[in-house]
């Protein structure tokens, strides 16, 4: 028996990078994305790509240079944003995006630090960090993508899953009350609280640009379709059907009371800019109360 060996071809690192970068640069926003990372892994109809796109457009609208911004993200589908953006990004451990970003924002006050994460990461395992960062009013921009479940691990119930919604872990319908995220952020002390859906892409760009110029702890909740994890067990249809649902069922109410902004399974969604106030930030309070005592008067 004769064994025929294949001829060995030496590995050419140039060819793979060339293949990956072939598609890069076709779109004008590709300068904000790492070469070779697009197409991303998100499902067709997922809203996360819209949020990433609107964030890039918000940066452009605010006129912030890329080297003055940093993005920190946690674990989950949304956490992959840190891998796609071509700027200073960090992909932290589960739920600890805010502690990492807190350190970054305190050491480098000149940077605009955005925390880009999902509802499961920010409010389930990282809930305590969220309320304390909001209480201290640290200069962080929180962008929370709410898709009502844990999408990456297979559609389990999250703290934002509405009552009676079916998920993998609640096959008879969820019976636990969900968080009202804008109210939680407002009660904890955020200075800017807004909620938009991915259908309101233009409002979302304006809100992101506005929040990037504010000093202090800002919070934007983005409601995004999750056709695989949340849409399929609840019979909400494809991602496009969920976007049409947002078009028909969202009420734009700026300056609405955040305590009335609860979301049901198929109820109305109140969107808008809820809170826009100013409060002394952590840096200012620290400088006034602590640093001034130790600086010698000349």
């Amino acid at each position: 028996m004769k064994i025929r060996h294949r001829t060995l071809v030496p590995f050419d690192p140039q060819s793979t990078t060339r293949l990956r970068e072939e598609q890069h640069g076709l779109h004008p926003d590709d300068v904000y994305l790492k070469p070779g990372r697009i197409p991303h892994i998100w499902c067709p109809g997922c809203g996360l790509g819209v949020v990433l796109n609107t964030y890039i457009n918000g940066l452009k609208m605010a006129g912030l240079p890329v080297d003055r911004t940093a993005v920190v993200s946690g674990i989950g589908c949304t956490g992959r944003v840190a891998g796609y953006l071509n700027m200073d990004t960090y992909h932290t451990t589960h739920g600890r995006a805010i502690p990492f970003a807190t350190g970054l924002a305190l050491v480098r006050p000149d940077l605009t630090v955005t925390v880009f994460s999902g509802d499961g990461d920010l409010f389930a395992i990282g809930g305590n960090h969220f309320i304390h960062a909001a209480r201290r009013n640290i200069n962080l921009k929180i962008l929370c993508v709410n898709n009502f479940n844990y999408g990456m691990t297979g559609g389990q119930a999250a703290p934002t899953t509405p009552v009676a919604a079916r998920t993998t872990t609640t096959p008879y319908g969820n019976f636990e009350h969900s968080f009202n995220l804008p109210f939680l952020a407002y009660a904890s002390g955020a200075v800017y609280v807004a909620r938009w859906t991915t259908f309101h892409a233009r409002h979302l760009v304006t809100a992101i640009a506005e929040s990037l110029t504010r000093k202090g702890f800002t919070f934007i909740e983005v409601i995004a379709p999750c056709p695989i994890g949340y849409g399929r067990p609840n019979k909400l249809g494809s991602g496009l059907d969920e976007m049409k649902f947002y078009r028909e069922n969202s009420l734009v109410q700026n300056d609405a009371d955040p305590r009335e902004a609860d979301i049901g399974l198929k109820g109305k969604i109140i969107v808008g800019k809820f809170i826009d106030q100013s409060r002394p930030t952590f840096d200012q309070v620290y400088e006034e109360n602590i640093l001034k005592k130790f600086t010698r008067s000349a």
Binding site: I38, H40, L48, G49, V50, N53, T54, T198, A201, R202
Partner: peptide, 13 residues
């Protein structure tokens, strides 16, 4: 530019 903003894949402008 709405299609550019709403496209999740950066595939249209």
């Amino acid at each position: 530019n709405l299609c550019e903003i709403i496209c999740p894949e950066f595939a249209i402008y």
